[in-house]
């Protein structure tokens, strides 16, 4: 009679995060700053993406000590990242009581062929997607929430914009198609037909889609909301800035009031230096995290 881990409960959890900001944190102190600044959830990590990029080598699930520390520090939901296809990292984090798992390209993939079968888990998953085919495949595997991949740890919004525009444009295209065109579109996109059919009927994705990967300023966050994001993940952008607390608060407010440009001007005054950032064209192909996963 009492059912846990249902689609409604897993997707509903993400619905409650809408209009909010989810922040990457690496310890209890940062988690408390994020919560006090109005974050709707925190992502517990060993290193933020910019530092993962700098450190090189293999990036894995965070040390459970850090995850536990963050779980105990805040009352808002705690998310954590597992490597793509790493069933055991995901199960370990689930067993610790993490509220949401990110099967993330920010970490080094553990499986180059298969993503996790996320339907097997009670804990809900968020996954990255660059286009509607990738988004539909992840939903097909049981993802309860999506985010753009962007290009993590760069402080450069251009890739997140590309991915959000791509997905929104493809949703509009699919919505306008006749049903007899849909199977061919499913084949071309590599998307499960039934999920594409649902997207066509509803005119939107069946799960929420956040922006992620390159958000560095309040204006970046507002831009992604304008383009149709349901909310925003900020990774390196907050705790790699000169004044994390001010940045965090300003990004939260800009996300809520993304069309109030006078307010965003006010919020952006005297924030100090944003994270330095990287021009995408200077990244070697192997350093592009968004190419991980399929």
């Amino acid at each position: 009679m009492l059912k846990t881990g249902t689609d409604r409960v897993k997707r509903g959890m993400a619905e409650m995060q809408k209009g909010g900001v989810i922040m990457d944190v690496i310890n209890a102190e940062q988690a408390k700053i994020a919560e006090a600044s109005g974050a709707v959830a925190v992502m517990a990590l060993e290193r933020v993406p910019a530092d993962i990029r700098a450190a090189g080598g293999v990036a894995r699930m965070a040390d459970p000590t850090i995850v536990e520390e963050v779980l105990n520090a805040v009352s808002i939901p705690v998310m954590a990242k597992a490597r793509i296809g790493h069933i055991v990292e995901a199960r370990v984090l689930e067993s610790m009581g993490v509220d949401y798992l990110d099967e993330s390209e920010v970490l080094t993939p553990a499986d180059e062929v298969f993503h996790l079968n996320k339907r097997d888990f009670t804990v809900p998953f968020v996954c990255g997607a660059r286009d509607l085919g990738e988004a539909s495949r992840r939903i097909g595997e049981g993802a309860s929430m999506l985010r753009t991949k962007g290009e993590p740890g760069t402080g450069n919004i251009v890739e997140a914009v590309r991915h959000m525009r791509m997905i929104q444009g493809q949703i509009r295209k699919v919505s306008a198609m006749s049903e007899d065109e849909l199977m061919t579109e499913a084949k071309n996109l590599g998307a499960p037909y039934e999920i594409l059919l649902q997207i066509k009927k509803d005119g939107r994705l069946p799960v929420v889609n956040f922006a992620a990967g390159g958000v560095a300023t309040p204006a970046d966050a507002a831009l992604m909301m304008e383009l149709g994001a349901d909310g925003v993940f900020v990774g390196s952008g907050i705790f790699k800035s000169a004044n994390p607390e001010k940045f965090a608060r300003a990004i939260v407010e800009a996300t809520t009031h993304y069309r109030d440009y006078e307010l965003i001007a006010q919020l952006s005054k005297g924030l100090g230096t944003a994270m330095k950032g990287i021009d995408i064209s200077t990244l070697l192909p192997g350093d592009r995290m968004q190419e991980r996963g399929w």
């Binding site: 059912k3 846990t4 409604r8 409960v9 509903g12 959890m13 939901p77 009581g97 509220d99 809900p124």
Partner: peptide, 26 residues
């Protein structure tokens, strides 16, 4: 509890009705 304990259950709500699907999330 936490998210993994989130659940759905049938509720009786006085003045509203029987078998109302209650979705409880954290």
């Amino acid at each position: 509890g936490r998210q993994k304990d989130s659940f759905e259950a049938e509720l009786h709500i006085k003045g509203v009705g029987e078998d109302v699907n209650g979705v409880f999330i954290r």
